[in-house]
Design a protein around this nucleic acid. Structure first.
Lengths: 243, 243
DNA sequence: CGCCATAAATGAACGTTCGTCAAGTTTGAC
DNA sequence: GTCAAACTTGACGAACGTTCATTTATGGCG
């Protein structure tokens, strides 16, 4: 059962935590190029970013090795070389940390997919390639597989992190007359749940890995193109990811 | 995070537990009609059935009230009027108990759905009515809503408990030329995940309840009938459940 | 350079949990 | 009535995520 995310249980709904709020991803902005505004990012901010990144990396490693729940906050903190309590300056809960890990994995994958698909002509094929690659990654990559047991959390992260691309592609393909989608957000929402569920079913042996083709066909059916068109679309050759 | 189902963590993998194995659902077989075989179900077996049923009922109540994880095994045991350790003679873990609760809820719903749909002529409509009713129940009935946060477990239970009907209906509709489904099991698997995920999204406010119609349309699209036919099918009048 | 208010890091301690186990009780065949 | 087998019990262990009083580091200011 889920343990902490339940609002019923955390008795004192502390409004503390996550007061740090380091800007998550900004590599540029070196001390030099900032003569007058914010004091150029002091030592504190730099340490906080290091800590946050170390925590996410440590959490990713530990959770990958042992699974999300078997990973203890203590081990993660130790591997990131911070005190046990420090973790909670950066993440409200273990759940939030796990989600942060997930999002980095998905973000990376999203970039790699786009690097391939932006040479495609058919927007429908862009979408098809995307969901197929996510499925393959989910059942192949150990780092994903270990996390699949929290379906609704993963599906939601997938919806958010990769939704930017997926929903755009659904819309483009619909405008091009390839798909029949009036509510792209909804279709993507349903697709993420089915996708993650299917990945989980495969990694737990409830579905054979060979079902991947048919899964993609059926997910493409949700775009309203009918069974035949979906089969054709999923059968197109798929270039490999780079990186 | 999930707590107990992880095999890594339970250090001593006990092979004990669940040695009881009372036949879960057999109402008939009264002491009278059993003159020679098993000694007519002794007091032990009767007590065991009472305990098991009391445990499932207590678990259903407590989990409905407080949510699955906030419900403690102690409270469930007390409300079922058995000792705290006794629960583990009947269910290997809290998870297994929660699943048992779920299955009773789903089994009941399945029977009520079938009582309505067996008067339908179009097998496609039988299927459509079924998934629509499951969705409505999931987002309406408090007992379901409280459990939705364990998507993969619920989806799997839904697959098993209601799969008997759903897969049959998918096959019938395909044979009648209404659907284009070659692998009914797979389509049902994907549908359960999308259905539960959508229900969860609605109860958590990520989707409006008014999206239910469109959700059903897209789930019907997975049967390969295309967007237009799906819209028509989902728009048919739906008689109310009885009971 | 030294001081100090403030913010962050720390890790021991807390409270709660599930699951175990040795001891006690009930059962029903003989 | 006897007794072994089966079931029940509730105190207990171990482990976890989280908290909080304390310590430490920071950087503006005199």
């Amino acid at each position: 059962m889920l343990k902490y995310p339940n609002p019923m249980k955390s008795r004192t709904l502390r409004a503390k935590a996550a007061k740090v709020e380091v800007a998550p991803e900004t590599e540029y902005d070196s001390p030099m190029t900032n003569p007058d505004q914010t004091p150029a990012e002091g030592r504190v901010a730099r340490r906080q970013r290091r800590n946050r990144e170390a925590l996410v990396a440590a959490a990713r490693d530990v959770m990958t090795e042992k699974g999300v729940e078997a990973a203890t906050m203590l081990e993660i903190a130790e591997r990131a070389d911070v005190g046990a309590g420090t973790v909670y300056n950066y993440f409200k809960s273990k759940d939030e940390l796990a989600i942060a890990v997930l999002e980095t994995l998905m973000h990376d994958l999203g970039l790699r997919i786009e690097a391939v698909t932006d040479t495609f002509d058919d927007p429908a094929q862009v979408y098809a390639y995307g969901i197929r690659t996510v499925l393959d990654t989910a059942i192949t990559d150990v780092r994903w597989a270990q996390m699949l047991s929290r379906s609704e959390v993963i599906a939601d992260a997938l919806f958010r992190v990769m939704g930017h691309f997926a929903i755009r592609d659904l819309r483009l393909a619909s405008q091009a007359g390839r798909f029949e989608v009036s509510n792209a957000e909804l279709v993507w929402r349903l697709t993420t749940h089915a996708l993650i569920g299917a990945g989980h079913a495969i990694t737990t042996g409830r579905l054979p890995a060979s079902a991947a083709d048919q899964i993609i066909v059926r997910l493409l059916c949700m775009t309203g193109i009918g069974a035949n068109a979906a089969v054709e679309l999923s059968a197109r050759p798929r270039p490999a990811l780079r990186g």
